[in-house]
Amino acid sequence: MIKLLTELCGTFGPSGEEEAVAALVKRRVKDAVGEITTDAMGNVYARRPGKGARVMLAAHMDEIGLVLSHIDARGFARFSNIGGLRLDMAANQRVRLKSGRVGVIMEEERGNKDDKKIDRLYIDFGYESGPAARKEIHVGDVACFDRGLECQGNRVISKAMDDRVACAVLIETARRVQKTPNDVTFAFTVQEEVGVRGAMPAAYTLNPDVALSVDVTMSGDVPECRPMEVALGDGPAIKVKDGGHIAHPKVRDLLVRLARKMKLKHQMEVLNLDGATTDAAAIHRVRGGVPTGCVSIPCRYVHTVSEMVDMRDVEGAVKLLAAFVTTDLRKEGF
């Protein structure tokens, strides 16, 4: 699984340019699930048809990044954010374009250092002149952060852990679950980081009876952080609410029951941060409403280049999802 995670995290895929991740996901899920399709937005659906309740499991393929907005006379690039880019951490980072070209984000030396405005940052791709730069890079080109994956014991650090770790969880679940009484679709969605845009059409298309989104959540186990009971290594987190969604009580209670039944270490998650949410927010309001829950992977330093998760939580999430999709969800009232 760490191999799969390494591959996924290392693939280029800021919101709107998820094709490489989509191709990889399709390759890796193909053996487990026969029917793979895409839609107008680029969402990938891996479906195992069945007679029972229609279940949607969603993980988003996109990652935060940036888009070039101007290339100046000397070849320096300016940029705009893609998703919730943290300006406090963007400076001094390396970024990579789809072409492979690497640049460094730097902050203008003059001016007010406390003024954390994106306008004060620029990218140096190492071009010797404006014309040389313009031959290769253009306004609208997209970049993601350039940082490898490190595995140390149970803890893994990488960029784009949000939400490739959930893509890995879904793929692994698809591989492990051979028989299910339900009609299960693993949906790998696009454009979550820019406002949960892909999941809404995906849920509309699938019209599920019940849905789960799988995503990372923040943790409360680092020095001087927001009070939150979620900790790395304490198991997958079952969401109660976040900044955009309240988990459907029936789905949440079922997840708790399943975890207890198999004595799986788990934790309850209340993410009290305005606007911070997952695909579940988009899914649950589609059509006449979809009972939707969320399984979270606790993650430190979300939206930085060093997102850290614990593999025991990841493994736990796979177990919990596997139990969920093998439960007869019609009998549970969905």
């Binding site: 409360g220 009070p227 939150m228 009971e229 109660v240 609410k241 309240i246 209340v270 009290n272």
Partner: peptide
Amino acid sequence: LVVTHITPGGFLRVAPI
């Protein structure tokens, strides 16, 4: 409101709904 944390002393921290 919703309980987010129970302190060692038994006090409840909460978040708004």
